[in-house]
Design a protein around this nucleic acid. Structure first.
Length: 562
DNA sequence: GCCGTTTTCGGCCCGACTGTTTTCAGTCG
């Protein structure tokens, strides 16, 4: 785990402990804020001279960070975690239990962790506490059962289709005038906690009743006039809010978040003697669209993907981030030459249908035995086949490429003579993904600096919720990528999204170019492009930052420079 | 604990729903 991640976890933990101890809520929040800042920090925090330059990090936190970097320990952290049973941190994850209740459970019912909480429920100790009725205990029990089986946030690629399907079913109901998803889904985060749906309707009861009665609803968590929450059988929570159509914009803004973005917006409103909530911006009484609210606060409309209070408030105009329409080619695709399931003809047909001017065939190299990687002889034959198809198929340029393995020591899986025969070389790490950050940085640097490599494919090799992948020093890679004019891939597959959002931003700000590719093995994989686009937008990427936005001849020129 | 387009001290976002209560605290987003 990187120092940043370790420290972020510690600050999160300190915030939770302080909360349970009943500390000042602002102090709690300050610790959470530091944790968040560290999570999103791309540079190694140890390399930053003055950490108080990071927004949210003040003198006190800086001292703790410095102490940890120097000694590997943090006095205050150790003191805090020693002050409560460690298992209480898990109890805080039970839905419906907050700091006040957890403290009471601990001090009045000897609850110290999840097992002792279950035990206290079973032997009736919990029921003897004041304000612990039958219903509350039933809810805690169900939350415990849920927690035991569903710990992770769900991948964007799973949640988005579910949300679209729900909306398609509910939007056609009588009286519904408006319906959209909001929350972290609209912001395009790589994982989603729950689905937020916002609706306007003349028949609110019909909508909420239908929603709660849908066949994939497993449990109704709350059902009021304007708000209801359910849990789907797949384990996802869906919150629906019904709002007046003339207040839809204010509600959309509010429920899209992030919380941190909203807080800054409300603070701005207060400074201008205004008041912003989910019903509108007073006293101007603006609420119909997000745009008018931002405008009244003296700001341009901010795309949802960057509403994280990470610099978007400095924008003087709406940034023109990349969209799917800007993507003119896919430079990383597979065929049965290795482990793909589309012929070259099929690839070409799909590329033409999507309006691409170019598609690259980049099958795996020889080390990828399990993926039917091409031995040098087979690659030569494969290149001939691709060239032949490129001659006979019109309407799209088909590039002969390879996704060549970056071996653990940074060398490539084919010799230079063979690589030089290719139109495009995507070099990716596939094995030895647990090496040290130092080794990973060296390995990837070698590939970036290789004169025949155009793109570094999925640079960290992470699999969301499954595999951490490499932890190279991103600023170092970005600097080298700029120097060598090598593109860093944002692999659009929703399992990967690698580079991730903060890395994309570091790349773009550092002047490196990115490539957004689907790594398609099957026809439907091309639909994953949308997740890559959302992630790129979260990384503030504009078309000028991305080689997939180059016109045909510009791309050829860029490729031939290597 | 952090921060400053009135502030280095005095603030720090705001409303809905639930459950257990006779008027509201706690949790969530």
């Amino acid at each position: 785990m990187s120092t940043n991640t370790e420290l972020a976890k510690m600050f999160h933990t300190m915030a939770t402990v302080l909360e349970i101890m009943g500390e000042n809520a602002f102090k709690v929040n300050a610790n959470s804020k530091v944790a968040r800042a560290l999570e999103d920090l791309v540079e190694d925090v140890a390399t930053i001279e003055d950490v108080t330059t990071i927004p949210g990090v003040g003198k006190s936190s800086a001292k703790k960070i410095a102490q940890y970097i120097e000694s590997g320990e943090m006095f205050e952290y150790q003191q805090l975690i020693a002050s409560i049973p460690h298992g209480l941190l898990d109890v805080m994850n039970v839905q419906g239990l907050g700091p006040k209740t957890v403290r009471r459970l601990w001090q009045e019912a000897d609850v110290t962790d999840i097992p002792s909480l279950r035990e206290a429920i079973e032997n009736g100790r919990l029921a003897s506490l004041p304000r612990m009725g039958k219903k509350t205990i039933e809810n805690i029990t169900q939350s415990l059962d849920f927690l035991a089986t569903n710990a992770n946030r769900t991948r964007l690629g799973v949640v988005l289709p579910i949300a679209e399907n729900l909306i398609a079913q509910l939007k056609v109901l009588k009286g519904v005038t408006n319906m959209r998803y909001a929350g972290s889904l609209r912001r395009g985060k790589e994982t989603i906690g729950d689905i937020d749906i916002l609706a306007s309707t003349d028949e609110p009861k019909l909508l909420t009743d239908t929603f709660c009665a849908m066949s994939d609803v497993e449990k109704i968590l709350a059902q009021g006039d304007t708000k209801c929450s359910v849990r789907l059988d797949v384990g996802l929570q869906v919150d629906m809010r019904v709002v007046d159509v003339v207040k839809f914009g204010a509600a959309l803004l509010y429920f899209t978040g992030s919380k941190e973005h909203n807080i800054v917006l409300r603070e701005r409103a207060i400074k201008q003697d205004k008041k912003l909530n989910e019903y509108g911006l007073d006293p101007s009484n603006l609420s119909e669209t997000e745009e008018v609210i931002y405008a009244d606060l003296g700001m341009p409309w901010i795309p949802p993907e960057v509403r994280e209070d990470h610099g978007e408030f400095a924008c003087n105009e709406t940034p023109m981030f990349i969209t799917s329409k800007d993507i003119l080619c896919d430079l990383h695709c597979h065929t049965p030459g290795s482990d793909g399931h589309m012929s070259i003809e099929e690839l070409a047909t799909i590329a033409i249908a999507r309006g691409f001017h170019t598609i690259a065939v980049t099958d795996h190299s020889q080390s990828q035995g399990q993926a039917n990687g091409l031995k040098p002889d087979r690659l030569r034959t494969h290149i001939d086949l691709i060239r032949e198809k490129n001659e006979t198929i019109s309407g799209v340029t088909i590039l002969a490429g390879s996704e060549v393995d970056i071996l653990p020591d940074g060398t490539l899986d084919y010799d230079d003579e063979l690589l030089a025969m290719l139109d495009i070389v995507v070099a990716s790490p596939h094995a030895a993904l647990q090496q040290s950050p130092e080794d990973a940085t060296k390995r990837l640097l070698a590939a970036i600096e290789h004169p025949l490599v155009h793109i570094i494919g999925h640079p960290t090799g992470r699999i969301i919720n499954k595999r951490k992948g490499l932890e190279p020093d991103i600023p170092t890679l970005v600097a080298a990528a700029v120097e060598c004019d090598t593109a860093l891939e944002l692999n659009a597959n929703s399992y990967r999204l690698d580079l991730k959002d903060t890395h994309v931003r570091a790349a773009c700000e550092g002047g490196a170019v990115i490539a957004i590719n689907t790594d398609a093995h099957r026809p439907e994989d091309f639909d994953q492009l949308q997740y890559g686009i959302l992630t790129a937008r979260r990384g503030w990427a504009e078309p000028k930052n991305c080689i997939n936005c180059l016109e045909h001849d510009e791309l050829q020129t860029w490729l031939l420079r290597k």
